[in-house]
Write a protein that binds this DNA or RNA. Structure first.
Length: 292
DNA sequence: CCCCAGGTTCTGG
DNA sequence: CCAGAACATGGG
């Protein structure tokens, strides 16, 4: 049965939060808001003033704690943003998308989706994830599917995964699923290890290098000090922080990263890090105001 | 037929 | 240890 949950989240931007390259299972609704699946909970979300209203189609009665955790309600984002804004570049990035939050996702899903993210585009990642869930996920109310368990995924083969069109990443998915299902890697337990140890453990999965490991730690195990370095962040760091990311903010580097990533992608010229212009790309419509 | 996409692995110096 | 290429697949 479905029920609604209301979370006090003033200034939350669903578009910036659900469609900023951290989660891959949400689609915008024509009337505004988003639909998606979190765990085995199909849901629709929309803002109602300074509250987020979630219509959750699951069997359990009180999902309130679940959604509070997912949106990291206990973190004081106002204080966080004030702290980040002590750095000029971060101040601009935060001001550009103040409604952005980092979600607390499930470990295995985060591992798989970021394995799929390598050398891939966000729309393509979403497509592969949708097919993966449709093929192997638990059927849920409303013709949607949960994310496959490690056990189910580990029972597949390269041939059976071919319809996903995941390319060479299919083998990486299988290795991740096997290591998790067999207990060689205990994802929740990694959350308790020192960051570097957890990182090393994750990198023993084929297809998991430093970047994917850091994404898994940040989005799947909620280690907000983990700083994934993709091509965009590398441009930002070289341009703005040649001496390294500010130590004073290292305990929330991953959260800062999400603002910088979003800002850099939507507004590279403001950071003077315009990527190589694409051959015949339309000028990206810009909602930035470059100061001076 | 080119290049790129929230990288990683493999190979040759 | 480090630079380049290869890796499937989709899109511009």
């Amino acid at each position: 049965m479905s029920h609604t949950v209301c979370l006090p989240l003033p200034h939350l931007s669903l578009a910036d939060t659900l469609d900023c390259g951290q989660a891959f299972r949400f689609t915008p609704l024509p009337e505004g808001g988003f639909s998606g699946v979190v765990g085995n909970r199909p849901c629709e979300m929309q803002m109602q003033g300074d509250h987020l209203q979630i219509t959750c189609h699951c069997l359990s009665q009180s999902c309130q704690p679940f959604w509070e955790d997912y949106f990291d309600l206990s973190r004081d984002y106002s204080a966080l943003q004030q702290r980040l804004s002590t750095e000029p570049s971060l101040k601009a990035a935060v001001a550009f998308a103040p409604g952005l939050r980092v979600l607390r996702q499930e470990p295995f899903e985060a591992l798989c989706t970021f394995i799929l993210s390598q050398n891939n585009s966000i729309p393509n990642i979403k497509g592969i994830v949708a097919r993966l869930c449709g093929a192997l996920g638990q059927p849920l109310p409303g013709e949607v599917f949960g994310f496959p368990t490690p056990e189910v995924l580990a029972g597949e083969t390269l041939a059976s995964l071919a319809p996903l069109r995941a390319g060479y990443r299919a083998g990486y998915l299988l290795d991740a699923a096997e290591k998790v299902a067999s207990g060689v890697i205990d994802l929740p337990a990694l959350g308790l290890l020192p960051l570097e140890e957890a990182r090393m453990a994750l990198m023993r999965i084929r297809g998991v290098g430093p970047k994917v490991a850091d994404c898994m730690l940040l989005y799947g195990l909620h280690r907000v000090e983990s700083l994934p370095k993709d091509v965009w962040i590398n441009r930002v760091l070289e341009a703005l922080y040649p001496g390294g990311f500010p130590v004073a903010l290292s305990d929330v580097a991953g959260l800062a990263q999400q603002y910088l990533f979003h800002y850099a992608r939507h507004c590279p010229e403001a950071l003077a890090i315009s990527p190589e212009p694409q051959r015949s790309a339309p000028a990206p419509k810009s909602r930035c105001k470059v100061p001076n």
